Amino acid sequence: MDLVRAKIALCDGRIDEAISLCDTGMAVADDPVLASWASIGSMVRAITAMRRGELATMIHHANQIKEDVIFGREGLWGRDTFPWNSPAWLVVQIIEAEKGWEVAVPLARGLLTSESSARGLLLSEPSAASFLVRILLRADDRETAERGRRCAAVLAAENPGIHAIATAALHLEALLERDISLLQQVAASDCDERTRSSANEDIGDLLSESAGGFRQACMHYETAMRSYADAGSPRDSSRVRSKLRRSDAPKTAARFWPSSRISVLTDTEYAVAELVASGLTNAEVGGQMYLSRHTVAFHLRKVFQKVGAKSRIELAVMWKQLTGQDLDVASHG
């Protein structure tokens, strides 16, 4: 059935295919005989809307799922045909997107506190575990997070042929141990695009906390940002972009680039000048330094004033000499 195939495509991170299959399946589900299948379609539509940042659409379909339960159309939510806690997992995602991670903590805790609940969720939505554990670790609830890890490890041992569960167990181990090498294994694994993206984001988070790790963190953030976008999740891509721009421009430049080797130039001015001298446009410089083109142009004007260059070409010609010796501030006013 197209709705089941849509759910599988969604789990694999194939958002566009999931939407297309869901639309086809929902048209068939209009038949009263097949109406109970519409709950799967509502869930797929809610999750795809959330990943695209379409919160109003997400809430609309989430409310449809609630109506299915209230009015007894929950046949496919039973244990025999569909994981009973899938709606709860969807609710956690919706609350986190709409109201923030703090509000989602109690529900996240509930899904991993019970062993049967955790097992059911890991078997149906293996990638859900890392999302829940991140929320719990942010709330300093390591005990419940550890329960999730133990459950994932047991399931991975019981199901050695299910790669998604093994990857989920490895991801939880990496998060709880703050182990970048394990996260790198997840990011390089043959799993779905979304899991690899989240692993790269996790690596970026850990590296950004360490002294001197910001440049490497940015590389992983950029990989995650592109991968989320390719997987049809602009909301996640936007979140990672905000992490790249979290620091103000001078602080970011100071951490990302070497200290100025020319005393009259600030670190930011030095970084801008070095990139311009190497032939980059203002837009390209801005892309590398996470500055707007207007900010780059402002810093470049300051560089011209301080070093006496009248053009980009002149700056490029004189740059090697400038970086080989210090400048006399007085000689350029």
Score class of each variant (00 low, 15 high):
residue 12 D to E: 13
residue 7 K to R: 15
residue 322 L to D: 01
residue 109 R to Y: 07
residue 246 R to E: 08
residue 74 E to V: 05
residue 178 R to V: 01
residue 278 S to Q: 12
residue 134 R to D: 09
residue 204 G to A: 14
residue 279 G to F: 05
residue 59 I to M: 10
residue 176 L to A: 01
residue 282 N to C: 13
residue 260 S to W: 08
residue 315 L to N: 05
residue 283 A to T: 14
residue 263 S to A: 12
residue 243 K to N: 11
residue 308 G to M: 03
residue 50 M to L: 15
residue 73 R to G: 15
residue 277 A to M: 04
residue 279 G to R: 11
residue 303 V to W: 00
residue 211 A to M: 12
residue 134 R to Q: 11
residue 124 S to P: 05
residue 93 Q to E: 04
residue 277 A to R: 02
residue 314 E to S: 14
residue 232 G to F: 12
residue 5 R to W: 05
residue 36 S to L: 12
residue 131 F to L: 11
residue 46 A to L: 11
residue 79 R to E: 11
residue 306 K to H: 10
residue 256 F to N: 01
residue 273 A to L: 03
residue 31 D to S: 09
residue 68 D to G: 09
residue 80 D to S: 15
residue 288 Q to W: 03
residue 160 P to S: 07
residue 193 E to D: 14
residue 182 L to S: 05
residue 304 F to H: 14
residue 151 C to K: 02
residue 327 L to H: 02
residue 133 V to I: 08
residue 190 D to M: 11
residue 212 G to N: 09
residue 153 A to G: 08
residue 10 L to E: 12
residue 274 E to V: 08
residue 2 D to Y: 10
residue 271 A to C: 07
residue 43 M to K: 12
residue 88 A to H: 08
residue 156 A to W: 01
residue 256 F to I: 12
residue 40 I to P: 00
residue 69 V to D: 11
residue 262 I to H: 03
residue 219 M to A: 13
residue 13 G to P: 00
residue 192 D to L: 04
residue 21 L to G: 06
residue 312 R to G: 00
residue 112 L to V: 04
residue 68 D to M: 13
residue 136 L to S: 02
residue 119 R to G: 03
residue 153 A to R: 01
residue 55 L to R: 05
residue 88 A to N: 08
residue 23 D to A: 15
residue 319 W to T: 08
residue 184 Q to G: 11
residue 79 R to M: 06
residue 67 E to Q: 15
residue 195 T to N: 09
residue 91 V to Q: 14
residue 84 W to P: 15
residue 205 D to S: 11
residue 71 F to M: 14
residue 310 K to Q: 07
residue 291 L to H: 01
residue 236 D to E: 14
residue 88 A to S: 11
residue 301 R to H: 12
residue 201 E to A: 13
residue 27 A to M: 08
residue 80 D to G: 13
residue 160 P to G: 09
residue 103 V to E: 14
residue 262 I to N: 03
residue 152 A to D: 00
